[in-house]
């Protein structure tokens, strides 16, 4: 019994795949239109994924540099320093507070210059350097908020947070994400609609065949499978083409990056390849099967 079941599964699967491909070739124009639409939709989705993952990757790399430097007013009395430090440490968004006095500042500067430290000779570092704090925050996106809050604190001369652009970048990412989701959503609906129509055309074309299949006792699933496969193949082909295009372009971009911008690393090619393939193939399959299922529900009355 099991043997027969397994046999039927493979025997029928080959038949269903054959029929699905035959239908796709018969409706070559509609098939091309469906694949193209789904390709465009998934390409946009893939582009957004790549962009966002790279921004996140970049942010991760520079996150350690996300510091707020606070310089104190010259000759701030000790008691005020203590009050200020307590206020800084008790701020809910602040993670760490590190005091850096002029002496430590000198050391840091000399370390940073390393062998070139002799250029510092002749400069009065006591005049240039101030006592201050280095503050880190829990969430990189909240760095602006913290910096603004600090402006009201007494005893602070200047607030510097050199990586302001990162929070701009994060905000940009949010915008790109939203626009991308909306675009991908619109194109997904369009894709579903086109697949819906392609399958409808096949259902119409195969009307006689389907009615005869029913009269001779074909099960409903035997009739449905080729249509589901048809939608799936369209979705999958669209996904593979979109992934292929994106991965190819990303490879080119990666080479350019390595050659031209050494300081910033991008997400490794193999990770992008894997993620894009998985997400797009899953998306394409879902859209394809969804479109053909909708069409069958409406036009294939079994």
């Amino acid at each position: 019994m099991i043997h027969k079941g397994v046999f039927l599964l493979f025997y029928n699967a080959i038949h269903h795949i054959k029929i699905a491909f035959r239908n796709l070739f018969r409706n070559a124009w509609m098939t091309t239109a469906s694949i193209t639409t789904i390709l465009v939709g998934l390409f946009i989705a893939g582009l957004v994924i790549i962009l966002i993952s790279n921004v996140n990757y970049f942010v991760d790399q520079v996150e350690s540099e996300l510091l707020i430097k606070v310089f104190l007013e010259k000759d701030l009395p000790l008691d005020q320093k203590v009050i200020l430090e307590e206020r800084l440490e008790s701020h809910p968004l602040v993670e760490t507070v590190r005091y850096i006095d002029t002496e430590e500042g000198k050391k840091i500067i000399q370390e940073q210059f390393g062998e070139d430290a002799d250029v510092l000779e002749g400069l009065d570092l006591d005049e240039i350097l101030w006592d201050g704090y280095e503050i880190t925050v829990y969430d990189a996106e909240q760095i602006n908020l913290v910096a603004q809050a600090l402006e009201d604190f007494e005893g602070i001369d200047e607030i510097v947070y050199g990586k302001e652009y990162i929070s701009d970048l994060l905000r940009m990412t949010e915008i790109v994400k939203s626009v991308g989701i909306v675009l991908a959503f619109i194109v997904s609906i369009a894709s579903t609609f086109v697949i819906f129509n392609t399958v409808r055309l096949t259902v119409m074309m195969r009307k006689d065949e389907i009615s005869i299949m029913r009269y001779v006792g074909a099960t409903n699933w035997f009739i449905r499978w080729p249509f589901i496969l048809e939608g799936w193949i369209i979705g999958l082909l669209g996904a593979l083409l979109a992934s292929g295009g994106l991965i190819w372009a990303y490879n080119k971009l990666a080479v350019w990056f390595v050659n031209n911008i050494q300081y910033v690393q991008i997400v490794p090619i193999d990770i992008v390849t894997k993620n894009v393939l998985i997400v797009l193939c899953a998306g394409g399959s879902i859209l394809g099967i969804f479109g053909s299922t909708l069409s069958m529900r409406k036009f294939l009355r079994l």
Binding site: R214, G217, T219
Partner: peptide, 22 residues
């Protein structure tokens, strides 16, 4: 039930005036 209909039809042969050949 609809999913049982094929089972019944496999025991029947149906012929029409217009042949209904593919």
């Amino acid at each position: 039930r609809r999913n049982q209909v094929p089972k019944a039809r496999r025991k029947m042969g149906i012929i029409f005036q217009d042949f209904k050949l593919l």
